[in-house]
Design a protein around this nucleic acid. Sequence first.
RNA 1: CGGGGCGUAGCGCAGCCUGGUAGCGCGCCUGCCUUGGGCGCAGGAAGUCGGAGGUUCGAAUCCUCUCGCCCCGACCA
Length: 478
Amino acid sequence: MASNEKLPTREQDFNEWYVQLVQRAKLADYSDVKGCMVILPNGYAIWENIQKTLDGMFKETGHQNAYFPVLIPERYLQLEKEHVEGFNPQLAIVSVAGGKPLPEGERYVIRPTSETIINASFSKWVQSYRDLPVLINQWANVMRWEMRTRLFLRTTEFLWQEGHTCHETEAEAEEETRRMLECYRVFAEDYMAMPVITGRKTDSEKFAGADRTYSIEAMMQDKKALQAGTSHMLGQNFAKAFKTQFQGRDGQQHFVWQTSWGVSTRLIGALIMTHSDDAGLVAPPRLAATQVVLIIIGKGEERAAVKAKAVALAADMKKKGLRVKVDDDDSKGPGFKYYEYELQGVCMRLELGPKDLAKDQCVLVRRDDKQKVFVPLPEAVEKSAAMLEQMQKDLFTKAKAFRDARTFEVNSYEEMKAKADDGFLLAHWDGSPETEKRIKEETGLTTRNRPFDLKQEPGKCVLTGKDSPGRIVFSKAY
RNA sequence: CGGGGCGUAGCGCAGCCUGGUAGCGCGCCUGCCUUGGGCGCAGGAAGUCGGAGGUUCGAAUCCUCUCGCCCCGACCA
């Protein structure tokens, strides 16, 4: 993989394109630890931008950050039956500590999620209805032993945030669950420029230990679905397991109603597969690590003058809040740099050379359309900011058009099989897990979610012909 | 866990069949040169050949065992 070799095209081999892009765009690399990756600065910067944005949204909705241990007593997990059954196969367990084997019953699991240990605290925190709601978020790493991993999309260790809340009533918990899902939708669409479908997961796809799970589902450029975020209505399942209860307005003891919700570094994979092209990463300006790179062209004294101007421009851009880099490396030619920054997903480059200075102009090139635009220098900063905003909008529009053109209603099982690889299929399903399973086995299609904004009209199941309450999204998925 | 592939310089690979001085491209370092789409020239540094055992005068190469990673399927955000 020489540095000047082109990526495989998406058409040739989408998977190989993705894997090479991630590494060559310096987003992440494999580590010596099986299934784990090293997130490189260019990738971590995107995560930091995701964190910054979401964290602000969580604070805005009244949540506070806290931190709970990475080690969870094994017996905690066992307190909620469905939960332990769901996660058991994926656990890494600490059985030796301090040079001594831990007795059975005192072992720890490395957190795969924190509902249990957080409830151990919640049960102490909550005494009265006056203590509610409890609105907590945690930024953390988690570990789920995976049989098969993929950079960003599924790794044994990953970074995420997990929100955990307690409420007095079921209605409040439900409202919170939906509020945070909506928060994810807004983030996905407005920041990632990635259109998503919000809806409810089927019982077989829901979180182990939840009453209901809602998700945002996105379509990648290979027409496969990616679950990009989930929000769970936990009901009173964990509350009962951990005795998280309060004295209510009626003087009686009640279990709290809970929610949990999370998004992970998987979002970076989603971002990559939604927007990038055969030249490399295309990142939405609001989250990109670097928004503008200024490339200095020229030699000797001329170069010095160009550099001075570029540095001044960059300073003005930074004042405007843009994430900017000046490239003054004279050991590489400009052409080389263009390819490199396109690969790395810098949103825009500003070329500045002696000829430009003479004409008091510069060249701006957007990463997504690569059109050269000549701009008078006094307007360069304003114009850059405007172009970035436009790019943000265009990426969303393009991604939405892509998805919409690949979303179909299907009305028979034959049609469903024929279109199995074509995108999102809206089909009637009788609601039984058996039918769902059979469809998965026979076609590779899984239910994604039942969209909120899809009017539910009765029909007949594509497989069994039995009554269906309404259409649900089927798709091949990551 | 099944199937496949790969471990030789930072990266990508050749060499192995037929045992005998460790090689190529890119990158890196020094100097000169060049700069508007992957510049050029000259010199240079860099490798316990994944690991262990064995065969042999001699092993990257042959034999045995082993470890790791990646890809494809079954589980999952």
